[in-house]
Design a protein around this nucleic acid. Structure first.
Length: 856
RNA sequence: GCCGCCAUGGCGGAAUUGGUAGACGCGACGGAUUUAAAAUCCGUUGAAUGGUAACAUUCGUGCCGGUUCGAUUCCGGCUGGCGGUACCA
């Protein structure tokens, strides 16, 4: 399409307005303390999930969420809010480094180029971000505070009584030893089996393993010394404090399942003088425990294995170790295991039961050991059947269900003093017994593991930690940020020390102390970026108290509210990012640095945009849509509008280029409400427009449709229902297009409604409309108010049903009585035909809507 | 396997509190304008039957059943698709 052919000259004015907004800092948000800060304005904090600036540039999924928040932000601004709607870059991370290794270019350079490209692309879409607040997680001024927060974690412990983080200095004051303190820090060193990727030369979090495996990287289990964050201490609060949040229930559930709380008991068994503890959610079935299983990696396996079983056991452990997680889990549901030759004593009845090892018991969950109750557990049942182990029924199902493998609640039998009790009561009774006899206790277990926080990479925040005689301590805060040294060779070493170990000058901090060579994972920077937006230039603190309180809204609300009013992003972060960020926020809250207990009050997940073929967009399928191309062909406003018109924000929906044409046609119609082409093909103000001309009565129908539109668009924006808002504006535009005389102020009010959606087009028209406020940008004007008087109709159409089926329509005045309506309805010819020969039993009148005559 | 979400014309979708199913857009068809096309404008468009027509009737929101004067909407049971998770004791 040549420029002549474009239905409206978007290419001319879109870049013009973008430049204008940029130069005038139109969307700058004043902070407390700024000259133009107005404390009387309510705050509104809208957050987009900031992008990882990949080399591929923006894809159409990004502008989906970003347009939605931009519309809401512009709407709130026009409604008198002080809107914080910033953007930044999650720029550390493995992809940048992998790319750097391939090309030999320093990741800082490629990251910078990618950021520039992303910024250019976002600006070309006309988003109203306050670019003065841009943050970049790799910026030394930002890294400084990420490391500072790490030190806060390092210097804190979790106080079990108050369920809050406290400074470890309190423990030191009480005389705790260095080792005791190190054992309770929220950031701690731990030697544990971890996911080591030989191909990438780094350790990965459990949560990341599958993602990288699917990209072809190798991952294996290996015991290593790593930095961990004690997120498990917050497990209960991370579940309970979800409640007041305005999040999709499905996401809350996802997080709850991930944390995986289960309540039960710990029971101590004796194996030849060794105490082995198991965790069970069904302590009431203790009498039915007919054997015990230890995970192959359980530390006691070596000691308890009898000499004649040693060979078998060793061989089994070796075979488990060589199996990948996939072979052990997904591919092999068949139970395997071997007896150790040892016997355990069931504490409740003194019975001797065999001890096995089997890989269906995991080392990382519970105690890595179970009591097997084959009668009432599917897995134990399968195992016992396969290896011919005894099965004892101890629960009687309430109905006549088969008790073999019955896992539900019932009545205890064959269980001594528990006999006859309901499962719920039996649990209580046995726990009490275990307590009294020192054989166990009530216990809560979580699936959530502590967060493996170290990586062996170059492109991440170095740990602000020094090592001295095998002990660690924090780098003085005055020395932050601690940046990676400039290195020629930042390739992974393949050893768990990571590439920083090669920077020999850098490592040696002093005669006696060396630097930690691990770096933090990408999550670190994204855990707190929303806070930095509130006070991005602060060199004294990560956020000033004043800015924190203002943007948290705690001056007029409670600490139970989340800081961010609305957070929009994809579901892929439903668990990890959102859980990690909540954890950090809570720690900072406990330590008195932030006033709310949660970061994000309302969360909305945008739905994935699929390719035109209904499949997920991917290079290999060739169905990827590049936003740059769409902007070039149809303009930024059309792209924005289309992405909002496709369907509900949260829904998965396929791209349709024809749909872009449709909204582009709509925008052209709006353009032609104000302009027409003269003989030379130039756009001149439409001759249909009337200006403050008292001789022309404003068309009542136009006022009605306009005010309906104002009402609907306002409501729809509030509930993020952008597709229906747009369809209403289409209806209004179609109505405006039909008349010969169109008052310019009515067009201006429609433009105000459309402005958050299509800011370039509407500002351009408004600036030339020759209405009183044409000189003021729409985004600086007030949102229009609808007038109820224009909406009410003198006459209403009412539907008449007979037995629930539509049989006629009547028109009544708005003050018609119920009786009038009933009479009128019965007079309708078609209605009479359907009532004929029947007795009217009942007439239901829904005022203003329908009449239903029930007859038989 | 378990948990969650979804299902409406040829297509994307609308129906906000149980009250006219299919708004709005796309596509298709017919027409106006044009030398012609593009663009634009007007009209028709869930299916079937009857009628020259206005219109009327029946069916219709994945399937089966229930509650209700009335169900796309609420309840129970299925089927299909998508997402998460997986031997979690």
């Amino acid at each position: 399409m040549s420029d002549q052919r474009k239905p409206f000259p978007f290419a001319d004015f879109e870049s013009k307005w973008q430049q204008h907004w940029d130069e005038n800092k139109t969307f700058r948000t004043p902070n407390p303390g700024d000259e133009d800060f107005d404390a009387t304005k309510p705050k509104y904090f809208i957050l987009d999930m900031f992008p990882y600036p990949s080399g591929a540039g923006l894809h159409v999924g990004h502008p989906e969420g970003y347009t939605a928040t931009d519309i809401l932000g512009r709407y709130k601004k026009m409604n008198g809010h002080n809107v914080l709607h910033p953007m930044g870059w999650d720029a550390f991370g493995l992809p940048a480094e992998q790319y750097a290794i391939k090309t030999g270019q320093h990741p800082r350079i490629t990251t910078e180029q990618n950021v520039d490209n992303f910024r250019r692309q976002l600006k070309s879409l006309g988003f109203g971000y306050d670019w003065d607040r841009e943050v970049n997680t790799t910026d030394p001024k930002y890294v400084r505070w990420t490391q500072w927060i790490f030190i806060q974690l390092y210097n804190s412990y979790f106080d079990e009584e108050t369920k809050k983080a406290r400074p470890v200095s309190e423990l030191e004051a009480k005389g705790w030893s260095r080792d005791q303190v190190d054992d309770v820090r929220l950031a701690f060193i731990h030697e544990a089996p971890v996911n080591w990727s030989p191909s990438m030369g780094t350790v990965l979090a459990n949560e990341e393993v599958e993602e990288w495996k699917s990209k072809g990287e190798t991952v294996e289990r290996r015991p290593l010394r790593q930095w961990m964050l004690r997120i498990t201490k917050y497990a209960d609060r991370l579940i309970n404090e979800l409640d007041p949040l305005d999040w999709p229930e499905s996401i809350k559930l996802l997080q709850k399942n991930w944390i995986g709380k289960s309540t039960g008991a710990e029971v101590h068994f004796d194996i030849h003088g060794h105490e082995v503890t198991v965790f069970t959610t069904r302590p009431d079935t203790l009498f039915g425990a007919t054997y015990m299983v230890l995970a192959p990696e359980h530390p006691l396996v070596g000691e308890i294995t009898s000499s004649n079983q040693k060979e078998t056991v060793d061989a089994y452990i070796a075979s488990c170790a060589s199996k990948s997680d996939l072979e052990r889990g997904d591919l092999n549901k068949d139970k395997s295991g071997v007896p150790t030759g040892a016997t355990a004593t069931n504490p409740v009845n003194g019975e001797k039961i065999p001890v096995w090892i089997a890989d269906y018991v995991m080392t990382g969950y519970g105690t890595g050991a179970i009591m097997a109750v084959p009668a009432h557990d599917e897995r134990d049942f399968e195992f016992a059947t396969k290896f011919d182990l005894p099965i004892t029924q101890v629960v009687q199902p309430k109905n006549d269900d088969n008790w073999q493998g019955f896992t539900g609640n019932g009545i205890s039998i064959n269980s001594g003093f528990l006999d006859g009790m309901k499962t719920k009561d039996a649990k209580k009774a046995i726990i009490q017994w275990l307590r009294d006899n020192n054989k166990g206790s009530f216990k809560v277990n979580f699936k959530l593991r502590d967060w493996l926080f170290s990586r062996q990479r170059y492109w991440g925040e170095p740990f602000p930690i020094l090592w001295e005689d095998g002990n660690h301590k924090a780098v003085p805060e005055s020395e932050l940020p601690l940046l990676q040294p400039d290195m020629e060779d930042f390739k992974p070493t393949g050893s768990p020390e990571g590439p920083l170990a090669k920077a020999t000058d850098w490592i040696n901090y002093s005669e006696s102390s060396k630097r930690e060579t691990n770096t933090m994972p990408q999550w670190a920077g994204s855990c707190w970026y929303y806070m930095r937006y509130c006070d991005p230039g602060n060199t004294e603190r990560f956020i000033s108290k004043e800015a924190e309180e203002y943007w948290s809204g705690t001056s007029n609300a409670s600490e139970n509210n989340g800081m961010v009013d609305l957070y929009v992003g994809g579901t892929e972060h439903a668990v990890l990012h959102l859980l990690y960020a909540r954890f950090w926020h809570k720690v900072l809250h406990d330590l008195g640095h932030v006033s709310t207990i949660e970061p994000f009050q309302k969360l909305v997940n945008q739905g994935l945009i699929l390719g035109e073929d209904g499949a997920k967009m991917s290079k290999s399928l060739g169905n990827v849509v590049n936003p740059d191309d769409v902007v070039l062909e149809y303009g930024a406003d059309a792209l924005r509008l289309y992405e909002m018109f496709m369907g509900p924000l949260e829904q998965v929906k396929p791209w349709q280029m024809k749909g872009v044409e449709g909204v582009s046609r709509f925008l052209a119609k709006v353009w032609r409400l104000a302009f027409e082409q003269n003989q030379e093909g130039e756009w001149i103000l439409s001759t249909k427009l009337t200006h403050e001309d008292a001789s022309v009565d404003k068309d009542k129908n136009l006022l009605k449709v306009l005010h309906e539109t104002i009402k609907k668009v306002s409501d729809d924006i509030e509930r993020l229902s952008f597709n229906t808002a747009i369809s209403q504006m289409m209806i209004c535009t179609n109505a405006f297009g039909k008349v010969d005389q169109l008052p310019a102020e009515l067009v201006r009010d429609l433009l105000k409604c459309l402005n958050p959606f299509a800011p370039h087009l509407t500002e351009e028209i408004n600036s030339k409309l020759q209405v009183p406020d044409s000189g003021i940008m729409l985004c600086d004007q007030d949102w229009p108010k609808y007038n109820e008087a224009y909406l009410v109709e003198d006459e209403v159409e009412i539907v008449v049903q007979v037995n629930g089926k539509l049989r006629g329509k009547i028109t009544v005045t708005k003050d018609a009585t119920k009786e009038d309506i009933e009479t009128l309805a019965q007079q309708d010819e078609n209605v009479q035909q359907h009532v004929e020969g029947k007795t009217i039993r009942k007439i239901i009148v829904v005022p203003g809507r329908l009449v239903n005559i029930v007859a038989n």
